[in-house]
Design a protein around this nucleic acid. Structure first.
Lengths: 209, 209
DNA sequence: TAGATTGTTAATCGATTAACAATC
DNA sequence: TAGATTGTTAATCGATTAACAATC
């Protein structure tokens, strides 16, 4: 919620949070910055600096209280407050994301899917209904079929060829954030933000460096 | 292939490459750094600097030759040379990745999938066979059932609860790169590299900034 | 005490942006 | 010519790492 947290810190804090959840399961009460750093193969002073952002404090000689630190991260990143989102495209990827249990825990609430395949319409994935894509505008703006909540986020998982057209429908439907899982560059108005889930880029970086 | 290319540059160059493919389809012969920058909402001198890395050169007043630049990026990032990989977990996410047409174009060649579900064994996804997970070691090291190619990369798409155990099987099977799509932190030996596809982190960063 | 760990400052390193001469 | 664009250097900005006093 605080715009001044660096992107990289947000991403690392999310990973720390995963580690802390693990610790709780294992019954570990304390963890040191060094231990976290080791698991992620990063610098331990970086870990302490990131933790300082959440105003959590540790104990000399023992480290950080796992439960307390976990809650501090949750407060900082604000994932208690749920954000509603649509998934556009109910293929394998859309389905996988609709089932991704973590999203719910981290503040992303998938409220519905949209697809063009008639055999999928009105079926459910993980309790979430699939609507016909042409109904998006209606669902998003007027009828508010889904919990009367304002939905500003869409996960775009349609085939590449349909991506730009879908993006246009999304902007017309007052979506403000498009999380783009397709391997295409979308052209959208300035008031819409796109985040490219650049899988190929991640792969090339991973195996080249 | 050149370890000195900054991560961010690699990721941006991949996006430029997507844009260039689009241009070709549309029949545009030239593109300016400004135009690319606009599409990605970044700085135009950044684009020129990234392009300088591939030793491609543009023309004053007209920009860069699309086809030439595209090839230069391909040379730089080396995705002509295919790298073989396994997908571990043939659920929705694994299936989606197995069908992802882009991977092939960018040098990632999925050669087989592995799963524990008996109903999936010996079926095919996008022409790629699904093997029983316990056979991984054998396939990866001895029999070399798959094209006699050395496979060092695995995409991990199993349920979170099975992630660590799968990672151990992978390291035993001489996998060197684990692209981790599960929301867990893996503990692996130092000679194995893990890349965490941190979806939740990307989401939090995207909607907070 | 000796040793381990935090919290924080300073130093380093790298990435982005600004600026502009050169070019066509 | 005037204007647009590259290529590159310099300036800025931000992120990571090193170092170490304070603490228990």
């Amino acid at each position: 919620m605080n715009a001044s947290i660096p992107s990289n810190a947000i991403k690392r804090l999310t990973l720390y949070h995963h580690i802390l959840s693990d610790c709780l399961l294992k019954g570990n009460e304390y963890i040191s910055s060094q231990h976290i750093a080791e698991l992620l193969k990063i610098d331990d002073s970086q870990v302490r600096k990131d933790i300082a952002l959440c105003a959590a404090s540790g104990k000399t000689k023992v480290g950080y209280a796992v439960l307390e630190l976990k809650k501090a991260i949750e407060r900082l990143l604000g994932f208690r407050e749920q954000k509603a989102a649509f998934i556009i495209g109910a293929g394998n990827l859309g389905s996988a994301l609709a089932k991704h249990t973590d999203f719910q825990d981290y503040g992303l609430d998938i409220v519905a899917l949209f697809d063009n395949d008639p055999t999928k319409i009105d079926t459910f994935i993980n309790g979430k209904k699939i609507y016909p894509l042409p109904k998006l505008y209606q669902v998003a703006t007027h009828e508010n079929l889904v919990n009367k909540r304002k939905v500003e986020i869409a996960l775009l998982t349609v085939p590449a060829a349909a991506a730009q057209k879908s993006a246009e429908l999304l902007t017309q439907s007052q979506i403000k954030y498009i999380w783009n899982f397709t391997p295409t560059i979308l052209s959208v108005p300035d008031n819409v933000r796109v985040c490219n889930e650049n899988l190929v880029g991640n792969f090339l970086d991973f195996t080249n460096n």
